[in-house]
């Protein structure tokens, strides 16, 4: 089994014969202008040519930030290019899970990359939730390149973004049913937050001491989707940038 060294053939509209995701060429999960910028980028031409799921690791472990496109020319980040490469080679599911679970412990940007891919490429909503949610307990820092600058985020926030936002890293995410809907349908169990115990403890502490500041409690509130509400940590300015990137 083999795939092409670049995406030329896969991007040729006249007769795509590869793997379909959501009934279409997976590369089309990225919008046309973004696709064009990726395949025109030097990083893509030099670093992504000829990668397979094993050699892609060489590049992924070098990642030092996430992000979509940046600068006036809207250059794609290496993160975005590698995500595109993954869509081109559509590695076996077990490989993606290996990236996410095992290799991701060591290399956090690889975990972020695998999570992004899963959110884009996996078709069963409930699997996306159950596979990604454990990493809402991964609080490692991630650097994010925005259109004009840099911001700091965390793995849990990034995962949360993937599950609740429409647009992440210059990409419109495929539609996903809200968690509560899937729970009502009986497709998902209610999520027990790993913070649950801590929340209880916090409540107890509150009762005991009665002097904890509002802000601290607010950080740990749980939103309607059963995810930790990370928005409270983020500034409004940052949100604005998320839409732009």
């Amino acid at each position: 089994m083999a795939h092409q060294a670049d995406a030329k053939r896969a991007l040729d509209e006249r007769g795509y014969q590869g793997v379909l995701i959501r009934g279409d060429n997976p590369l089309k999960l990225f919008e046309k202008p973004v696709r064009d910028r990726i395949v025109d980028s030097y990083y893509w031409k030099e670093q992504c040519f000829g990668l397979n799921a094993a050699t892609l690791l060489d590049r992924a472990v070098e990642l030092s930030f996430i992000g979509g496109t940046y600068g006036i020319a809207q250059k794609p980040t290496p993160f975005l290019c590698l995500a595109f490469k993954l869509l081109q080679i559509t590695p076996d599911r077990e490989i993606i899970l290996y990236y996410l679970e095992h290799a991701g412990d060591e290399f956090k940007y690889l975990r972020a990359l695998a999570a992004f891919y899963i959110r884009l490429a996996w078709e069963k909503d409930e699997e996306v939730y159950t596979t990604l949610e454990p990493y809402l307990a991964d609080f490692r820092k991630l650097k994010r390149r925005t259109r004009e600058s840099w911001t700091l985020t965390h793995m849990d926030e990034f995962i949360d973004d993937l599950l609740v936002k429409n647009r992440v890293c210059a990409t419109t995410l495929p539609k996903i049913n809200p968690r509560t809907f899937l729970e009502d349908e009986g497709k998902l169990e209610e999520r027990v937050s790993p913070l649950g115990e801590e929340l209880d403890e916090l409540d107890r502490d509150d009762d005991d001491e009665g002097e904890r500041s509002e802000g601290e409690v607010e950080e740990l509130e749980v939103n309607g989707n059963g995810h930790q509400d990370s928005d409270s940590r983020r500034s409004a300015e940052d949100d604005e940038m998320n839409d732009a990137d």
Partner: peptide
């Protein structure tokens, strides 16, 4: 060269990861 890239197996991915981890 063929211009075709051989698909990697899970074992190759694991091996590569272990190598990169060691290297780091």
């Amino acid at each position: 060269e063929s211009g075709e890239v051989r698909r990697a197996t899970l074992d190759e991915v694991k091996e590569r990861f272990e190598y990169l981890k060691r290297k780091r």
